[in-house]
Amino acid sequence: MEEIIKVENLTHTYGVGTPFERSAVEGMSLSVYRGELLGLIGHTGSGKSTLIQHLNGLLRPTAGRVLLDGQDIWAEPKKIRDVRFRVGLVFQYPEYQLFEETAYRDIAFGPTNMGLSGEELDRRVRDAARFAGLDERLLDKSPFTLSGGQKRRVAIAGVIAMEPEVLVLDEPSAGLDPRGREELLEHIRAYHRERGNTVVLVSHSMEEIARYADRIVVLARGRTLMSGTPREVFSRGSELVRAGLDVPQATRVAMELQKRGLAIDPAVYTVEDLAAALLALRKGGGC
């Protein structure tokens, strides 16, 4: 697989020279492969948000490099804006960044900054709204009259409309109700499948990551703790627990059953897989 983003030995220290000096990311390395949906997970304060702000050059590494398509993004600091169009970043609670008179114009802000206009701009705005699951009728409304979840979608559409090669979302589902979460994540998955673009999804919900990601990277205290497919990661459940993270409920049930002597695979991570495994066990006369 081809690496689209490569992070090498990244360190970021906040507040250098003040009593608040603190390294949020320390010597971290990470690869993002073209076309994958990468799940980035870690405990609160593990440095997820800090890390992803390096991917599009919003933060400059204290040490280490970030490569996009093999090129150091800080090789030419003047061109950092182009990097931001190629790697789209949706912040945590992005609804607070809305400012335009209508949702449509707010979504158009990014593409307009890229120099687009006319039909292409219109197409992008409408496409992005569809991908983010935003009703067309809401486009002419003021973003401030929308509900929290709808605002969130406007903000996400605003980044998708730039058609970035890599879309990075920082906890896109935080603070939404369960149904809102699922809908939003389904839309993101559909976007990923239809466009085939790379997506990096940050979350601290194991369930969410387990369900949607092709590959998982686990961060702990500013470093990469482990990475691999959901199966590989969840088969090391006890290490995750020690890092203060949860394993998905299905995995927890399977781990517990195995402990009690059942021949079940402890690395299942969705409820469906667990059910299938249990049924198979029953047919085979295991319990």
Binding site: L58, R84, F91, G110
Partner: peptide
């Protein structure tokens, strides 16, 4: 802090 955050978010959309 908030100014910093909003500024970053708009920069991520190419604001200059």
């Amino acid at each position: 802090e908030e100014t910093d955050k909003i500024m970053s978010a708009q920069k991520a959309r190419g604001a200059d």
